[in-house]
Design a protein around this nucleic acid. Structure first.
Lengths: 150, 150
DNA sequence: GATGAAACGTTGTGGTT
DNA sequence: AACCACAACGTTTCATC
């Protein structure tokens, strides 16, 4: 941890994680600070990198992506670097992580249908062996980070 | 897809996915609509479930969580249902999905350190066999959903 | 951090196509 | 049904303390 987050800032983060569009004024009313004080604290957390962005969650299915999958990749020798460049251009990939273990890469992808999934996997096979898991349901989705007890 | 998203709404979603705090006025200027028109379209997409929320991304490391891990769970017989209840109470779990394949569950967890990870895995072993992958780096993180070509 | 004022954004009404 | 115009209200953003 680069810097301590105080209780006011944790309250602000709690509000903003639940609803990123909450106004400075509303947050200020909840925690007992004036709007400029809230604005300044948020600005500082953005500058420090504590807050790295504000995202809108769009329903995959409403957007026409009927399928969400987790795909792991075990890259062939010399194929990891090329893959890491290519993956940034894949519009289907919403999250991609390098991980420890015999599979190097895990990614979450959104797809129109099974045919789309098949074509997507075909694009991956040049980089390594893949394993695919279809997501059946979201049990926990983007849960807010809590203040850690220490 | 329950309903067609037109080009104006795709532009709005594009803006809001990049920055959920963008104002109706700013979005309107970019796409050539008045603020009330933008507000009404966003309200309707919220009501239809196209937009399911607005989240602030908080840096795990700045929040004191030095470790992020992907853990898969292969639930013991009769232990999946109890786990699905328990997981909602685990503050470490930021995402959890039911998936196809011999592992039933995949989750993303944030942890203070290796000791915290060890204690967390201990809490899981009553429900099934686990496999843990430490996240080394985020290659793609919360990429916006694009209009699908059809 | 607070206050106060000016600039800006939001939200409701009414009217147009 | 979707949009615009306008006005009242709330919010943000400065300055200053």
């Amino acid at each position: 941890m680069k810097q301590k987050i105080d209780d006011f800032n944790w309250s602000i983060l709690q509000s903003l994680q639940k609803n990123a569009r909450e106004t400075f004024a509303t947050i200020g009313r909840k925690i007992g600070l004036t709007p400029p004080a809230v604005a300044e604290r948020i600005k500082k957390m953005e500058d420090l990198g504590v807050i790295s962005g504000y995202r809108t969650i769009v329903s995959h299915t409403h957007a026409g992506y009927q399928l969400t999958a987790i795909i792991t990749l075990r890259a062939f020798m010399g194929k990891l670097k090329p893959f890491l460049e290519a993956v940034k251009t894949y519009e289907e990939v919403v999250n991609c992580y390098r991980i420890t273990g015999d599979e190097n890469i895990i990614m979450q992808v959104v797809l129109k249908d099974q045919f789309h999934l098949e074509k997507f996997i075909d694009r991956l096979i040049q980089y390594g062996e893949t394993r695919t898991h279809i997501i059946l349901s979201e049990v926990v989705s983007n849960a807010p980070i809590k203040k850690k007890m220490s």
